[in-house]
């Protein structure tokens, strides 16, 4: 199936259960938003999908277009087509943005092929212009001394340069002012299409005004407790998460 599928995923860290029988399917071409209060396991899910090894996967499966990625190394998962835009992008001193993206591209090159530098820079500059990033940024060390907004733009730049089949965006809106939020959203919207699936993780509805999702999921206590249309996000914004907690706690 052409989808990102998570089935009955159970994950814990240091003996504490975080994801509980979590299931989610994102068909290619759709944008799904995952919302929920802090501490319900949203970021854990993102990291587990990307192959972070601090977490203990007890059971379940994650597949990209039917191919298992659970238990694979992070680079193998990236090659399989999954991109994670980090909530807190790491600083890599001395490594320029251009060189970093080029190295990531080179890692995807088939044996014996190399990157055409002229074409690479042309594409890089076009995408930077679209994200309203100063071209001088290419020479700056990756994320070193960047503002919150600059880091997030840089994540979206990488995402667009690496052309993944599935994008997971972890709290991309945190630390963004309204202008940056618009620019970043435009960048993401340009990438939307039938060949790509998105999982947009966010705490606030604000981002979803600009990246309008096909489906909104509400997560609580390690699982999805409610799913609906984009309208659901606005409802959540108006009513807060307390009603979700109440409704969910009432069912158990």
């Amino acid at each position: 199936m052409n989808a990102l599928e998570i089935k009955n995923l159970n994950v814990s860290i240091e003996g504490q259960s975080i994801l509980k029988d979590f299931s989610l399917t994102i068909p290619k071409g759709e944008v799904h938003a995952l919302m929920g209060p802090n501490g319900t396991g949203k970021s854990t899910l993102a990291k587990v999908m990307a192959g972070h090894e601090d977490y203990e996967v007890e059971s379940g499966s994650i597949t990209l277009d039917g191919e298992n990625i659970l238990g694979e190394e992070p680079d193998a998962i990236a090659h399989a087509g999954l991109f994670l835009a980090f909530q807190y992008p790491l600083e890599i001193p001395g490594v320029s943005i251009a060189n970093f993206i080029r190295a990531a591209r080179a890692a995807r090159c088939p044996e014996g092929e190399s990157i055409n530098a002229v074409e690479f820079y042309k594409e890089l500059y076009e995408k930077m212009d679209a994200l309203k990033m100063d071209r001088k940024f290419t020479a700056r060390s990756l994320n070193a001394g960047f503002s919150g907004g600059e880091k997030k733009r840089c994540e979206i730049l990488q995402m667009s340069m690496l052309d993944p089949a599935y994008c997971v965006m972890d709290e991309t809106d945190s630390g963004l002012d309204i202008d940056a939020l618009k620019t970043v959203s435009e960048g993401v919207n340009l990438m939307r299409g039938p060949e790509r699936g998105f999982l947009v993780i966010t705490h606030y509805q604000r981002l979803l005004d600009y990246i309008v999702p096909d489906v909104v999921h509400v997560m609580f206590d390690g699982r999805i407790v409610h799913s609906g249309s984009a309208e659901l996000a606005r409802e959540l914004e108006a009513k807060g998460y307390d009603w979700v907690k109440e409704a969910f706690t009432a069912t158990i």
Binding site: D75, A78, F83, I92, G94, V95, A104
Partner: peptide, 27 residues
């Protein structure tokens, strides 16, 4: 965490470390 970040972009563990070291001596 830095290595994880770079590997998420598709670099192998060795390539990631190599890049970090090259960055350190770059100047």
């Amino acid at each position: 965490e830095q290595i994880f970040y770079m590997m998420q972009r598709g670099l192998s563990e060795g390539e990631a470390m190599s890049l970090a070291v090259n960055g350190f001596v770059n100047e």
